[in-house]
């Protein structure tokens, strides 16, 4: 007889992968096309990681932001169930509002997260080709006070030279987690690499105090970037480095 009978439930642990996608007017055309294409193609890979991973299953959520911001679905979905709906580009770049909206959902009571027991830190991938047109600093300040965000793996993809890498570095906490792409092919590849790496590392049981999962993701993506033409680690910008409260 086992104590784990029908009356006891042992749910799988979960890790949520967030895409934050800039859908402002400047993304129109091949950029947004590449994003749509890349995400659709990476979803089955995430599902595979999820299915073969004993540690945790992976859920996906996506937030697009332009003049306002909008979740593709009002809950995170399992990778194999997430049906990508192509996003359209127009409007401004309300990254500040997107930060606030993400902050809203990074909570258990009113948001997308479950109890911290049994959860892994989320991974957040931010894609942008421009500079915020709203009060980014205020939005980010709120987000940075969020415990889930503090623990999250945060990576940003800067599309082209117009992207404000300093802003992206502030978001990720380090300029090392900002990767720049200069062509459509590189964009597709980097989305795949970042999403897959973040999911692999993010959904593994880890041990406190070692190199953070974010650092592991950064170093793996950096290695991969060396082999992608037209992608690079963002040149050194003066991003305020974000130190953890708990160390």
């Amino acid at each position: 007889m086992s104590l784990l009978d029908e009356t006891v439930s042992v749910p799988r642990r979960t890790m949520t992968l967030f895409f934050m996608i800039d859908t402002s007017g400047s993304m129109a055309g091949s950029k947004i096309g590449a994003v749509n294409d890349a995400v659709v193609n990476v979803l089955p890979m995430l599902d595979e990681i999820s299915v073969t991973n004993p540690d945790a299953e992976i859920k996906v959520a996506a937030l697009e932001f332009s003049t306002g911001c909008n979740w593709l679905y009002n809950e995170p979905k399992l990778a194999n169930e997430f049906v990508w709906q192509d996003v359209q580009a127009n409007g401004l770049t309300s990254l500040g509002a997107a930060c606030e909206e993400l902050e809203n959902k990074l909570s258990r009571s009113k948001g997308f997260m479950q109890s911290a027991s049994g959860s892994f830190a989320p991974a957040i991938i931010l894609l942008s080709d421009g500079a915020p047109t709203d009060n980014f600093e205020a939005g980010l300040a709120k987000l940075k006070a969020n415990n889930w965000f503090k623990s999250a793996i945060k990576v940003a993809i800067a599309i082209g030279d117009d992207a404000d890498k300093e802003v992206l570095a502030k978001f990720t906490g380090t300029n090392e987690a900002v990767f720049t792409v200069h062509n459509i092919d590189a964009l597709k590849q980097i989305i795949r690499v970042v999403a897959v790496t973040s999911s692999q590392i993010g959904s593994k049981s880890s041990t406190a105090g070692d190199t953070t999962k974010q650092d592991q993701v950064i170093s793996e993506v950096q290695n991969a970037v060396d082999n992608i033409d037209g992608a690079e680690v963002a040149t050194k910008v003066d991003g305020s480095s974000y130190a953890d409260d708990w160390d």
Partner: peptide, 19 residues
Amino acid sequence: DGMDDSFGEETNLVNFYVR
């Protein structure tokens, strides 16, 4: 924490102890 991480929501853990 190996225990509570196995059960996610706290009621699941409590339910196990009830069991």
